[in-house]
Design a protein around this nucleic acid. Structure first.
Length: 833
RNA sequence: GCGAGAGUGGCGGAAUGGCAGACGCGCUAGACUUAGGAUCUAGUGGGCAACCCCCGUGAGGGUUCGACUCCCUCCUCUCGCACCA
């Protein structure tokens, strides 16, 4: 740094100004928000973090995006709610406790205070008065209260089921939390156990969760699609096949009732309860049992993979096809899943790919019952199943019917004769919520020998999670070993009774936190109707795509139940969703193992938070992945220094507030055009498209234009008012992106109040109006010249100007003009031969 | 396999029917300087000695006066689902 620079102005020193303004904002309670029905609200929310230890770039990105919106909307006059909190229950705290010998509570709260400090150093405008921490009793009390609400409404139940078990986490998992057969958190292969567990009846809401996706216009299509696929609604029929030799029925689910006459065999899942009954005491018993055991032992990933060979075994039993009375063999097969439909499938090899492969392998008969238009399928020559449309054949009274109509016709026939019925099946399963872990909200239930399952009364909440506990690596639910916790009095009969020792899935805690922000301190209810009706729904939710099904589906479910209970008037919690992309470096996701991690702290240390925020927002649109670039960060830092210098070197133009030549100079009009074009562009980019990268580039262009005006005007006398307008506009437009430096520069420009309380500028249409525009002249679509003409020139004037150009005349000489196209203010295209 | 999204300079990315490559990075040359990795100025898709010329947005075709943009076919990559009956 040369002494001249020091002499004229202070250098840009983020280390000095950033903490200064952060302190000031905090002292003045700048971002406190109040429920105020007289004002239009806007609720901006970033997914709250798990307090894992320290912030990473993904956090910095999501908070930077949210903060730009929050600051921008505040300046636009909205009453903005922008809160932050902690998804503080969870397994890592327990593991850390075992490894480091620190209690999970202490580990968590230390992480929270560290991460909170980091968030503050980013200059994010949160209302910290509304901070929620899910592991605090004043929060989980209401998580428990909501569990009881579900229980009362018949939406929480306990049942014994085959459940996913993660051996690493030593707990059960919900289906959503198993991804490709492995645990979503630790990637261990998931096993199965028969356990009695608590479930929430999310399947009761399957149709509403599916249908209401259509209301979510502000959600990315791919997220909605993922939820749709996850819910997996499938319409069809359940059909009863009478077993031969038994007075019992075998029920199957099918979406293809039109192929019912093509059934040549039946397949049961190995776990199907009828298997035992069918084979016990028969000569097939040993063979079938061996097969069942073998398949059960295989892990679920390979068994449910499409590539796995379909194998099966004949049970020696048969059943009767209800529509044609045919006797078909019953097999057990590895490709049939007990968890979907009825656990039994009718085999129609001619029209189902899996059935075809299976039938060919075991020489089961194939019968065509759908004939496509224009070709004739023959069983002997088929090489694959035909799954397309066609007319029904070999199907008795239904012959000749188009198969789409046949689906309904067959179902109608079945219903009439009491052989089956219309049925909708979902892939979605009920949400398994109990966890055999310590660090979670206790499930508020007791088991009384006399009274059975008894919910803890609301006025006895919260069921406090004891903190005097030593965690060990093994040994089931840690709470079960705590006598003081386990034994209590039955709220009904007063007798000695056991508490539930499982805790709740942490996804429950995060399914309603956005409501708690509306009434963070309330101690008589989870939230107040008044606050929630004012603030909800969240207008803009921002977070990672990894929660497309998990958190985002659960939260929607909770909102609907809360709505049904009459506690809120909205049914969908998040009006608009922004799924932000990931942060990469050197082509890979930042991770410790790859050694390509850049921490927010080191960026703040080296360049300041403003530079980091600006880079993150400038490098890529928010929903796309972002490639980290140290040089790109340098560039943003350079830009901020350039702005700093611009303001410092020219602030006297503003201070003097003096006279100058009026706006009518050509250079002045041009600069004013740039100023107002920038206002328009930045406003629209933030408001309509979240294109923060192009918004920032528009500010850069304005800075460049201002420098170039000053350069050119240096010889003559620059217009103070235009410069003042430019400087002020630059600082204001930049404020949501770089809050500290702009606050400092705002003061340098002579203001006493905060820039973050200023009104966002409107652009001046007048300044954007230009008299002369450059219009491109094309011949056959190729640019051959440019003309300056009045902006409002009509077609004739445009053509006259184009033909007036010597070059154009020369090029047109001897050619036949076929057509002349004009676009006002843009171009002329002359089509010739 | 099914579904969704994407493919543009050396790089990140702009442009949603009208001048392809805004803005930034990098690079080149120059200025200032004891020096600069600071700052400023100019240039920077490819071809060509050069242009006002030609080529150019994954490939091929189509619609249009005009296509990165719309339609069809194909290729590649990313993500999601994956025996769901």
């Amino acid at each position: 740094m040369s002494w001249e620079v020091d002499f004229f102005m202070r250098a840009y020193n983020p280390k000095e100004i950033e903490p200064k303004w952060q302190k000031k904002w905090e002292e003045e309670d700048f971002y406190r928000t109040k429920t105020d029905p007289s004002r239009t609200k806007y609720y901006v929310l970033e997914m709250f973090p798990y307090p894992s230890g320290k912030l990473h770039m993904g956090h910095m990105r999501v908070y930077s995006i949210g903060d730009v919106l929050a600051r921008f909307l505040r300046m636009r006059g909205y009453n903005v709610l922008h809160p932050m909190g902690w998804d503080a229950f969870g397994l890592p705290a327990e593991n850390a406790a075992i490894e480091n010998n620190v209690g999970p509570a202490r580990w968590t709260s230390e992480n929270i205070s560290f991460m909170k400090k980091q968030q503050k150093s980013l200059g994010v405008s949160y209302d910290w008065e509304r901070e929620v921490t899910t592991c605090n009793p004043d929060y989980y009390r209401w998580t428990q209260w909501l569990f009881l609400l579900f229980y009362k409404r018949g939406l929480a139940y306990k049942k014994k089921a085959r459940v996913n078990w993660c051996p690493q986490c030593e707990t059960v998992l919900a289906n959503e939390q198993v991804e490709g057969g492995v645990c979503w958190r630790c990637s261990s292969t998931v096993e199965f156990r028969e356990l009695e567990q608590w479930f929430l009846k999310i399947t009761d809401y399957a149709d509403r969760l599916l249908d209401d996706l259509e209301l979510l216009e502000g959600w990315p299509e791919r997220v909605k699609l993922m939820q749709k696929n996850w819910i997996g609604r499938s319409e069809g029929a359940e059909i009863a096949f009478r077993l031969k030799d038994f007075d019992e029925e075998l029920r199957v689910f099918t979406t293809r009732s039109d192929t019912l006459f093509g059934v040549t065999y039946m397949v049961l899942a190995p776990e199907h309860p009828l298997v035992d009954k069918l084979v016990s005491g028969t000569e097939k018993e040993a063979e079938v049992r061996e097969f069942v055991n073998k398949v059960k032992f295989e892990n679920e990933i390979s068994r449910t993979s499409a590539e796995t060979e379909k194998i099966g075994v004949f049970t020696g039993r048969t059943c009767i096809n209800p529509v044609n009375g045919e006797e078909v063999p019953i097999l057990v097969g590895n490709y049939v899943l007990m968890s979907y439909g009825t656990g039994a499938v009718m085999g129609v090899p001619a029209h189902d790919e899996r059935d075809f492969q299976f039938a060919r392998k075991y020489n089961l008969p194939i019968r065509v019952v759908i004939q496509p238009e224009g070709e004739v399928l023959k069983e002997e020559t088929m090489t694959e199943a035909y799954t397309g449309p066609g007319r029904m054949v070999n199907s008795g009274q239904f012959n000749g019917l188009p198969n789409e109509e046949g689906i309904n016709a067959v179902i109608a026939y079945l219903e009439k004769h009491n052989l089956g019925s219309r049925k909708v099946t979902y892939r979605l399963r009920d949400w398994l919520i109990s966890r055999q872990r310590y660090w979670g909200a206790p499930i508020p239930i007791v088991y009384c020998e006399k009274c059975g399952i008894v919910p803890v009364p609301e006025d006895e909440l919260p069921v406090i999670l004891p903190t005097n506990i030593t965690l060990k690596r093994e040994g089931g639910s840690p709470l079960a070993g705590l006598e003081d916790f386990v034994w209590t009095e039955c709220p009904r009969c007063g007798g000695k009774t056991r508490r539930e020792t499982d805790t709740m899935d942490t996804f429950i805690c995060s399914s309603w936190y956005f409501l708690r922000y509306a009434s963070p301190k309330l101690d008589r209810a989870p939230f107040s109707r008044e606050d929630v009706d004012y603030w909800m729904p969240v207008d803009q939710y921002i977070g990672g795509i990894e929660h497309a099904v998990l958190h985002l589906l659960y939260a929607r479910f909770f909102m609907k139940v809360i709505y049904d209970a009459g506690l809120a008037k909205v049914q969908e919690p998040f009006k608009r969703l922004l799924a932000q992309g990931m942060v990469y470096k050197d082509g890979a996701k930042m991770s410790k193992s790859k050694g390509n991690v850049v921490s927010p702290d080191e960026i703040i240390e080296k360049y300041g938070a403003d530079t980091g925020r600006l880079f993150i927002l400038f490098a890529s649109p928010p929903e796309k992945d972002l490639e980290w670039s140290d040089q790109g960060v340098e560039g943003c830092h350079r830009f901020l220094r350039r702005v700093w210098r611009l303001i410092n070197e020219n602030k006297h133009f503003v201070e003097l507030n003096g006279k100058g030549t009026p706006f009518n100079g050509e250079a002045e009009q041009k600069l004013r055009y740039h100023i107002h074009a920038a206002i328009k562009k930045v406003t629209e980019d933030i408001e309509e498209r979240f294109n923060f990268n192009t918004a920032i580039s528009a500010i850069m262009e304005l800075v460049n234009a201002t420098y170039s005006y000053l350069d050119k005007a240096a010889e003559g006398e620059p217009d103070r008012r235009v410069i003042a307008e430019a400087l002020k506009t630059i600082v204001i437009l930049l404020a949501p992106f770089a809050p500290h430096i702009t606050e400092e520069m705002w003061q340098l420009l002579g203001h006493k109040d905060s820039i973050h309380l200023q009104a966002w500028p409107d652009y001046d249409e007048e300044a954007l109006r230009v008299e002369q525009v450059e219009v491109v002249v094309q011949i056959n679509g190729k640019v051959r010249g440019r003309i300056m003409i009045p902006a409002d020139a009509d077609k004739e004037q445009m053509l006259a100007a184009a033909h007036g150009q010597e070059r154009i005349r020369n090029l047109l000489a001897g050619k036949e003009i076929l057509k002349e196209v004009t676009v006002p203010g843009k171009l002329v295209n002359i089509v010739v031969r």
